[in-house]
Amino acid sequence: MTKRPQNMTILDVARLSGLSKSTVSRVLSGAPNISENAKKKVAEIVAETGYQRNEIARSLRSGRTGVVALVIPDIANPFWADVARGAQDAAVNEGTSILIFSSDWDPVREKQHLQALVKSRVDGAIINPVRDGLEDIEQFNLPIVLIGSSASRFPDMASVSSDIEQGVALGLDRLASSGLGLPVFLVGDNERSASERFLQAVRRWAAKRNVDCSGLIVENGEYNVDGGRAALERILATHAVPRAVFAANDLMALGAMQALRNKGLSCPDDVAVLGFDGIAAGEVTTPALTTVAKPSRQIGDEAFRLLMQRIEGGQGDRMTLPCTLYERGTLPARVNEPQPALMD
């Protein structure tokens, strides 16, 4: 076995492999147009000696750390965890590390995280902004890609988002196909622009179909199970039992299902429930949650790809990804669907 020099450097790898320092550096960096023989020699020396690159020194030379940041509003929400997984998987393939921050929908905490990531000298950041202003981010001249529907507030920045209007239309068309009419809506805090964008999509759907939506019943709540349950409980306390509920995310929808069970109501026989996100937890409820799914992992993957383009000096792009309806058990059958024959 080749003896490893103390405090081994890239010069030692070059000497032991019989290659130049620049060739070894290019091999270790994964540069193209390197001969297989050179790759083999370097790989053998690295394996035998256990040599590891001095990443601190490399970052000082290149001006990059090989680390990017991801700022999401709620790491406990499986949807955002899936977004993070998509970005992380893409980063691993590129030899990049990701620092993940959760703002918990708190503008103050989000600002603290942004200050921390700049101090950490990350190469760039993927952000789902919970605030309306990003001036304090832009002043740091950091490559940024925005994710989520909030990205629509910043038309000049690279972004990846799901098509909320298309997704809302998918859900409302599905409810209409069962003859349910307009549902009651559970959305986030009314100070969050995401809630208003969701409701704007509802109004545009209604306008295109000449549906009167002047009497919409809307209840605000936190984007979690407790928030959804409390929001529907408030509706049930002040209104007649609705025929359908459309929640702006799946956790709120699961909370709504709890509220119905607590009132002795069944789903979908008494009240139909439709979610929005497509988290895996919706598959294991009883009944399983019908939902409009956003492409969470693809959002993370595409956002990382765009961020790499921004770090390399490109302008990036603006991507809007389509949603998909996951048919499960919380909506009744479509009116025009044949019903199964009864067994004697």
Rank of each mutant, 00 (worst) to 15 (best):
A69W: 06
D74A: 14
A76Q: 12
N77Q: 03
N77F: 06
P78L: 08
A81M: 09
V83T: 04
R85K: 13
A87T: 00
N93R: 14
N93D: 11
E94Q: 14
G95S: 10
F101M: 12
D104H: 14
D104Q: 14
D104N: 14
D106I: 06
E110S: 07
E110Y: 02
K111F: 02
Q112M: 11
Q112L: 09
H113G: 03
Q115A: 14
A116M: 13
A116Q: 13
S120F: 11
S120Q: 15
D123M: 05
G124E: 06
A125I: 07
I126W: 11
I126H: 02
I126F: 06
I126P: 02
I127K: 01
P129T: 02
P129K: 08
R131H: 07
R131G: 10
D132N: 15
G133V: 06
G133A: 13
G133F: 03
I137V: 15
I137Q: 05
I137L: 15
E138K: 13
N141S: 13
I144V: 15
L146D: 03
A158F: 02
A158S: 15
D163Q: 06
I164N: 07
E165C: 01
G167I: 04
G167L: 08
G167W: 08
V168I: 12
A169W: 03
V184L: 07
F185Y: 15
V187M: 10
D189R: 13
N190F: 08
R192M: 15
